[in-house]
């Protein structure tokens, strides 16, 4: 299996855009080597602005640049973009609906060794709670690049979520990307696994395991958390009657609750949420942390089997 970093998809997208988008500028807050925007700076030094360790200032500066007609991509770690600079994200960018893109890297628990302080597991919840904000969570390098290009074409604030690690390349994702549309990766009628971000590969492994046990499992990948693809969720709820959501994020406020919100209003069915269970992470290798915090195909399979085989769910269905 091939592995590539989603943050590289971000900067490769920026480099591709820069050629045809003269008003594109890139900001960073002293993590350019980590977000990979240093590679943009190397090619376009006059269109790159390092704000130092000033995430709050950077987001308001980006707002100012947007007001003057620029297309700023402000880059930092997810935990800084949403928590440290949450007010600026809300009041400088989301509220006036300015055309600022936030390239947030090192999201999720796979940031690894830095530990809980740097592991952004609340950023989807924060970003999607702001009106006017579009939230994109790509699943691999290529989709990260597609999201970056789509964000540039879209007018309005966009939060782009990338990871630190190299993650599996998932060829099935590489069809056309459209903001607000889920991607049907496997069709099936017993249960739907809905994934976002880099958990897509674990979701597909889980679907294969379940297929081996003669379950007909659907997999829908959601690279857009907001606006969420309601049609795909409703169809899955009606046709498969059981949903497992999978995200590298807290179970509070992320994909799982977005999906639960849709089905509870439209077509109630059981939704099990795989994610970080309202705890902070810790230092470790990404793989070790995925194991420890229950973000593996095996955890998805367990949740699916509860819905498929446990009396309590079957009786109440």
């Amino acid at each position: 299996m091939e592995y590539k970093q989603t943050r590289m998809g971000y900067v490769d997208g920026l480099l591709e855009l820069a050629r045809s988008t003269p008003n594109l500028v890139v900001l960073d807050a002293d993590v350019a080597k980590a977000t990979k925007t240093a590679e943009f700076e190397a090619v376009y030094p006059d269109r790159f602005f390092n704000c130092g360790v000033q995430e709050q200032n950077m987001l308001s500066v980006a707002a100012g640049l947007a007001l003057e007609g620029f297309l700023p991509f402000a880059s930092t770690f997810g935990v800084f973009a949403t928590c440290r600079a949450g007010d600026q994200l809300r009041n400088s960018i989301a509220y006036p609906k300015l055309n600022v893109k936030i390239g947030a890297t090192h999201c999720g628990i796979s940031t690894g060794g830095d530990g809980a302080s740097h592991q952004s597991i609340e950023d989807i919840a924060i970003a999607r709670s702001f009106p006017n904000m579009t939230v994109l969570v790509p699943g691999d390098y290529e989709e990260a690049k597609q999201c970056t290009l789509a964000a540039a074409r879209f007018k309005g604030p966009v939060y782009l979520r990338f990871g630190r690690d190299a993650y599996p390349v998932v060829k099935e994702l590489h069809a056309k990307f459209e903001i607000g549309k889920g991607k049907l990766l496997r069709n099936g009628n017993d249960l739907t696994i809905i994934t976002t971000g880099v958990m897509v590969s674990e979701g597909l492994i889980a679907a294969d395991i379940l297929a081996g046990e003669n379950y007909d499992v659907r997999v829908v990948h959601m690279p857009t958390i907001k606006p969420i693809d309601r049609d795909a969720i409703v169809a899955s709820a009606i046709e498969t009657k059981r949903i497992v959501t999978v995200e590298e994020h807290s179970v509070i406020g992320g994909l799982g609750e977005a999906v639960a919100g849709v089905v509870s209003e439209m077509c109630p069915c059981f939704v099990k949420r795989i994610g970080v269970k309202d705890v902070f992470g810790e230092s470790g290798e990404a793989n070790e942390l995925f194991d420890k915090y229950g973000l593996r195909a095996a955890n998805i399979v367990d949740a699916a089997k509860q819905l498929l085989e446990t009396e309590i769910y079957i009786e109440r269905k």
């Binding site: 709050q56 500066v61 707002a63 100012g64 640049l65 007001l67 007609g69 620029f70 700023p72």
Partner: peptide, 12 residues
Amino acid sequence: LGISTGAGMALG
């Protein structure tokens, strides 16, 4: 927010 926003505009 104001000086940051104004500085961003002024940079623009």
